[in-house]
Design a protein around this nucleic acid. Sequence first.
DNA 1: GAACTTTTAGATATTATTTGCAATAAGATG
DNA 2: CATCTTATTGCAAATAATATCTAAAAGTTC
Lengths: 151, 151
Amino acid sequence: MVSYTPAAMKAELHERGWRMTPQRETILNTFQNVAKGEHLSAEELCELLKEEGEPISLSTIYRNLKLMSRMGILRELELAEGQKRYEINQPSPHHHHHLICVRCNKTIEFKNDSVLKAGAKMADKSGYHLLDCQLLIHAVCPACQRSIMPV
Amino acid sequence: MVSYTPAAMKAELHERGWRMTPQRETILNTFQNVAKGEHLSAEELCELLKEEGEPISLSTIYRNLKLMSRMGILRELELAEGQKRYEINQPSPHHHHHLICVRCNKTIEFKNDSVLKAGAKMADKSGYHLLDCQLLIHAVCPACQRSIMPV
DNA sequence: GAACTTTTAGATATTATTTGCAATAAGATG
DNA sequence: CATCTTATTGCAAATAATATCTAAAAGTTC
Ligand SMILES: [Mn+2]
Ligand SMILES: [Mn+2]
Ligand SMILES: [Zn+2]
Ligand SMILES: [Zn+2]
């Protein structure tokens, strides 16, 4: 897991016969500049880019979110119900995990290097090339424990 | 995280004014008897029950998979692309995590109690009531590293 | 810059999941 | 046990996230 510059991303794309495009660079830059703790969905990213005056079509966004996740540049998160969210994939000092309330989707990020190390070790032991390692904790937050909401 | 008997599930449903039904008991039994390492999707569960002569409608299955996940009886996994999979949620000696190849979806289960403990501790520290704790490792398996597949 | 290949935008298709509703049945109450 | 209330079911229809198709545009190579 490494942090990518546009140049590094371009190099890695070229290794596989692929191309760097303005859209890919825009997406990379956007994720690198978005506030810490933000997890964008495809739709949200599309809206954000539209507002910022550099629109990219939704299908291109979908294609590249998947591509960049599979390259290890982004991490794909299934936090809330029904749609995937993405954030930049960063190495150790910034790497983190997620604790999510299954009722209200309130999410807490937390760091735990020993968990990351355990994940990296497991991948290595099995000969897998690590892309992302995320501890996902599903739970009920204090507020929702008090409420009488359906499940 | 506890293993549920039908009676325990019934008791917990009643606490919230809900009911135990034959369908819910069938789903619970099915997950408790399915082979270790099997992760069923809603559709697959529906087919399996049809074959076994106790069919349950797909919408009921969807409703109950969600309910039982939010009760902590099942765990909801996003392993492959495009659909959720479920397995019974078991405590420590059987509890495990998943290492997944993002290209071919080959999945390895592994145990790591210290990761589970770290997750439980984090939930507790934040006042969250723990339902499930899963380390998800996205990686590329040895076979796929050798192939020239797209991404 | 010509030839070749990948990528894009936009429209359309796909499909997992949810929802509305009438019928059914769980569980409570007397 | 008979009755009553209301949660739950099955089926059909709706929804929404994501994938795919195609022609046009833009990187790459020579
Ligand atoms: Mn995060
Ligand atoms: Mn498993
Ligand atoms: Zn909550
Ligand atoms: Zn693989």
